[in-house]
Design a protein around this nucleic acid. Structure first.
Length: 794
DNA sequence: TGTGAGTTGATTTTT
DNA sequence: TCAACTCACA
């Protein structure tokens, strides 16, 4: 950005523009900062904190709340560089609540040594609750139940207060499972992520005195990314801003991309209604991107209805046009992008770290990784089995969890037979029965192994030894973390078992454990006062994938669009701009979700500083299916004058395995030597009619060849609502044996119109269909996995 | 009780 | 495609 950071002294001459200055120096009362991308928002918040401090407000009265750890770290550092040792608390909502709950745990039914369960552990608990509730899962999934419970918690409904959005099969199930799940959580002295917010919000709601005290204590609250707050988070900041309504929120409704997780766009859209005295500041000047990039972003987002109108502008140079490229397949896409990056790096124009590639779903990273490896480019993937999700790391942490909170059954289940010590399924089942009968946690049930019904002597001995192990570890709790962890590894034989293995995988596990030990050492150094176990466990349970991303390292960054929020790169590639992926298939029928998808693309676009490329592949292998795609509808909404549209030519023709396909179809299926697919597809109103547009009367058999050449898969779909790639995909996966087509079935082809299937031959995925088209009075044969045939729904 | 093969079913985004 | 889960067998 072109605004230079201040040198640390004079706050007000830091080169802030008038709007920024207004926001920074607003003293008391609610403040809403509507900040477009790249408008210097973080700078404004940090300077505002510094300014408040300079006004004599004690640091301990100021709280900065963010959504991610990364954002919190950055804010903390930047505040520290402006005002060292300020005592301002900066952290995520979840951490803030976790801290609060340590102090008031008994009031919500927990003890202060409660555990925070990650998604995996809470899903396991949920699975047990589902089993216990004996509900019929045939019309729903555990995932759906989890989401609904999460929704309820985010709306501050306890199990007994649960009121579904609408009565449904799912609601009836949740009404039974939610209480059972919550019972288990409390019994295990554990909280899931949603609980942290739920408990904290209810604590504030139901304890007026406590609320008043905390309101008094935290007089100035600043919330970043306010558009991503859910109802529970809203309730928390609201409760802390009644007597002292010095609440500053910043955000951008256009960058709200967590609606699926309960984020409520209304929180920011209605902020002015909630706080009538609010002062509103708009930061619309962008310091990050070129004019071309910003224009593309701005034009796209104008298509959303639910937003606060705002117009982005920049004084930056126009910059290169945004590229939009159609590739034949995802391999061409990945290879070309990797080649472009490699070339720029080789020529010394850029370094690998200047580049980022964004995609909608993690599964899309594979081809890109492969291509980057081929080019010998270093890259970093932000996702997946992140460090704290790895089995070995979770195992070791589970020992610590169990030592810290003996009631944490999830942790016990994780480690009681890891490494293997002869405690199998049936033994566990008996322990569980015993625990249930006697109302004990599993560890206490294990203590009574001798009297557990049906337990063999051998099993009882093994269990007793495990209990002894945990007890012995318990004697180490007050030692430095590193030593405690070493004790876990040695006494449990965990390390020995790994060391005795020869496999590559186990070696890697050992290395990861070494890394975990290093983390523990560092933690010990940071917290020499001891007693760090609780804090350590809290920190490790609240880390996320994106936290591992190292911005300093010199490699190409691969990440999802969601993970990209808050970052910026000189060059950005956004791949797979295709219907079904972006927008995602699940958002297809819901206008609100569709707008969120559009915001997601908006976020991606606005990460780019100098160069941006959007692309899609005409054919993509996804979920093991190789199928034609349809370009994202969002691409139609972008301004052409800021863009350069390119049809990528594959290095080698794609002709490997299409021997059964009619020549015409082959040509139609893949790109030819001609013009762009997308550009010529549908002239936008503000553009001259494209030369490739074919008038209807020309669509005669004699000109068919020419015409068909222009109507390749991408464009077909743009003009024809008949079938979408997502529909094709879902239809295909539904019917593994064929594609769901039958002889005599009426079908529609976007080009040939309606027809009837007269013959089917072969098996999927190479099933062929012969279709007689009414208009042409002629039959044609297609490969069903390639041709855009859709059954006529009547 | 532990292991391995085979099957099934799902497959967005994350504190 | 792939991971999780089941089931059979040692």
């Amino acid at each position: 950005m072109s605004l230079r950071p201040s040198s640390g002294n004079g706050l007000l001459d830091a080169g802030l523009n008038p709007a920024q200055l207004q926001a920074v120096t607003h003293r008391d009362g609610p403040l809403l900062i509507l900040a477009g991308p790249g408008s210097g928002k973080t700078r404004v918040i940090t300077h505002r904190i510094a300014w408040l401090l300079s006004q004599g407000i004690p640091g301990r009265q100021i709280v900065g709340l963010t959504f991610t750890n990364k954002a919190a770290d950055e804010m903390r550092q930047r505040v520290a560089s402006l005002v060292p040792r300020s005592n301002v608390w900066v952290g995520t909502f979840h951490r803030f609540c976790a801290r609060l709950l340590r102090l008031y745990a008994p009031q919500v039914g927990l003890s202060e040594n409660y555990s925070i369960l990650d998604v995996e552990d809470s899903r396991r608990l949920l699975a047990e609750a589902i089993l216990e509730s004996e509900v019929d899962l045939s019309h729903t999934t555990p995932e759906a139940i989890a989401q609904e419970i999460s929704w309820a918690k985010n709306h501050l409904m306890r199990p007994e207060e649960y009121v579904p959005r609408r009565t449904s099969h799912l609601a009836a199930i949740v009404a039974r499972v939610y209480p059972a799940y919550q019972r288990r959580l409390l019994a295990a002295n554990a909280a899931d992520f949603d609980d942290l917010l739920l408990h904290a919000a209810l604590l504030l709601k139901e304890n007026p005195e406590l609320r008043r005290d905390l309101d008094e204590r935290y007089r100035y609250i600043l919330v970043d990314e306010y558009q991503d707050t859910n109802f529970a988070q809203y309730a928390i900041v609201r409760a802390l801003s009644i007597d002292h309504p010095n609440l500053t929120v910043t955000g951008d409704p256009d960058q709200s991309i967590y609606g699926w997780r309960g984020a409520n766009l209304s929180n920011i859209l209605d902020f002015e209604r909630d706080f009538p005295q609010v002062k509103v500041v708009r930061l619309e000047q962008n310091y990050r991107s070129t004019q071309a990039i910003l224009a593309v972003a701005d034009t796209l987002i104008q298509h959303n209805q639910r937003r606060k109108p705002k117009r982005l502008f920049t004084h930056n140079p126009p910059g290169a046009p945004v590229r939009l490229i159609a590739y034949p397949t995802q391999h061409d896409e990945a290879e070309d992008i990797a080649a472009r990056i490699a070339q720029a790096v080789r020529q010394g124009q850029r370094r690998p770290r200047d580049f980022a590639i964004f995609y909608r779903t993690n599964a899309l990273s594979r081809a890109l990784e492969h291509a980057l490896r081929e080019q010998g480019l270093p890259y970093q993937l932000v996702h997946g089995l992140e460090f704290y999700q790895r089995k070995e790391v979770k195992d070791v942490l589970a020992y610590l969890q169990l030592v810290h909170n003996p009631r944490n059954d999830a942790a016990l289940l994780r480690v009681i037979n890891t490494p293997v010590r002869g405690i199998g399924r049936s033994t566990l089942e008996r322990l569980r029965m015993h625990a249930q009968r006697r109302g004990l946690c599993l560890l206490d049930a294990a203590r009574e192994a001798g009297v557990v019904e049906g337990l063999s002597k051998k099993a009882a001995t093994a269990v007793a030894r495990f209990v002894a192990l945990i007890d012995q570890l318990g004697t180490h709790v007050h030692q430095p973390l590193r030593e405690l962890m070493e004790a876990v590894l040695d006494l449990s034989d965990y390390r020995e078992v790994l060391q005795n293995s020869e496999s590559e995988e186990e070696m890697e596990r050992l290395a990861n454990i070494e890394e975990l030990l290093t983390v523990a050492s560092e933690f010990d150094v940071k917290h020499p006062e001891g007693g760090g176990l609780e804090r350590f466990l809290e920190e490790t349970s609240l880390v996320s994938d994106t936290d591992a991303w190292q911005s300093e390292a010199d490699h190409v960054t691969l990440m999802t669009l969601h993970a990209a929020k808050g970052l910026e790169f000189p060059v950005v590639y956004i791949v797979a701009c295709e219907q079904g992926l972006l927008p995602h298939e699940r958002s297809r029928f819901d206008e609100e979700k569709l707008e969120e998808e559009r915001r997601l693309l908006f976020v991606g676009i606005t990460r780019a500083r100098e160069e941006l490329q959007l692309s899609y592949a005409q054919y993509r292998a996804y979920r093991g299916q190789f199928a034609p795609t349809i370009p994202s509808g969002f691409l139609m909404e972008l301004p052409r004058e800021q863009m350069k549209v390119v049809d990528h030519q594959p290095a080698a023709a794609l002709d490997d395995d299409e021997e059964f396909v009619e020549a015409d179809e082959l040509e139609e299926g893949f790109g030819d030597e001609g013009a762009t697919t997308w550009e010529s597809a549908e002239p936008s109103p503000d553009e001259d009619v494209d030369v490739c547009q074919v008038p209807p009367e020309e669509a005669q058999p004699t000109t068919r060849r020419r015409q068909r050449r222009r109507l390749r898969p991408g464009k077909r779909s743009l003009t024809s609502p008949v079938v979408t790639g997502a529909e094709l995909l879902s239809r295909r996966s539904k019917d593994a044996e064929g594609f769901g087509f039958q002889v005599a079935m009426e079908v529609e082809h976007p080009h040939y119109g309606r027809g009837v299937i007269t013959a089917l031959e072969g098996l999927a995925p190479r099933q062929l269909a012969t279709v007689f088209f009414y208009a042409e009075k002629q039959s044609r044969t297609f490969r069903l996995d390639l041709a855009p045939l859709a059954p006529v729904s009547s």
